[in-house]
Computed example of a mutant assay.
Amino acid sequence: MPNALCNVLVLLSGSGSNLQALIDSSHTEGSQVRVCGVIANRADAYGLQRAEAAGIATALLDHTGFDGREAFDTALMALIDGFRPDLVILAGFMRILSGDFVRHYQGRLLNIHPSLLPLYKGLHTHQRALDAGDTEHGCSVHFVTEELDGGPLVVQAVIPVEPGDTAQSLAQRVHHQEHQIYPLAVRWFAEGRLRLGDQGALLDGLPLPASGHLIRL
């Protein structure tokens, strides 16, 4: 969608720091990214306040009011589609999404995960990297598929694990890198450079490696 704004809908459950990074990036000259809406499943998600401060439309859909994941996801899809987004991104959205939901947004649904996928899918990634004695850690942006944290990789930021690192110190440094690579991946999509092909992620029409585009620090 070059030469046109790309409407991006953000799903979140918490503080929304990745949302803020995306908002800040979208304000740079020449950006084709427009955050068209933010939806949270928790009323106390600070990301809603970040969005409102930036003049972005918000909505709350509390998952506890639904009888099961499928019912919630059906309502969520209807709410999202009302914003008419070109791209949906998960920014700390603490829900496992149903297959119907993922298929509905196939090729236009991105997630960021705080590990070098395929390592450490799920939770507690920083402590698990330390427990394994890893010398490198990082974060990954990927297209979402029905496999949890398992879709084709777009970009990864790799940082060294420092002597004396704790899960907290590692998390802080990884978080900083999330704020760099997530807006980058969204920008690629908005510029028409990034898409999901039959065999995986494509950048400028060429297949990305299995590890995605690597950025080492």
Rank of each mutant, 00 (worst) to 15 (best):
I39T: 04
Q127G: 06
G197F: 09
R69P: 01
P163E: 09
S26M: 05
F83S: 12
A40D: 08
S140G: 08
G16A: 09
G14H: 05
V141K: 14
N18W: 04
P209F: 10
N3P: 01
L217F: 14
Q180E: 13
H175V: 02
Q156L: 02
R69I: 00
I56C: 08
D44S: 14
Q106H: 15
P207H: 11
F189W: 13
F66Y: 12
E70H: 06
M77E: 12
A54D: 14
D100A: 15
L90H: 10
H179G: 03
A132P: 01
A190R: 07
Q49N: 09
R193F: 08
S98R: 06
G133I: 11
L12R: 07
L214A: 01
G68K: 04
R95N: 05
G138S: 02
D73H: 11
F143I: 01
S31A: 10
T28F: 10
C6A: 08
L79P: 00
S17V: 06
S211R: 13
T166G: 03
T166F: 02
E147D: 14
G99F: 00
G192I: 00
H137T: 11
L170Y: 01
D198Q: 14
G65A: 13
D131L: 05
F143R: 02
M1F: 11
G197M: 01
R187M: 01
A21H: 10
D134P: 00
C6R: 04
F72R: 03
H124T: 06
L109T: 13
D149L: 01
S17A: 06
G16L: 04
G205Q: 07
L203P: 09
R84C: 13
K121Q: 14
A201I: 04
L123N: 13
G99W: 01
G82S: 13
V155Q: 08
L61F: 12
E178V: 03
P152T: 05
G138W: 09
A21N: 10
E162T: 08
V186W: 04
H124A: 11
D67S: 12
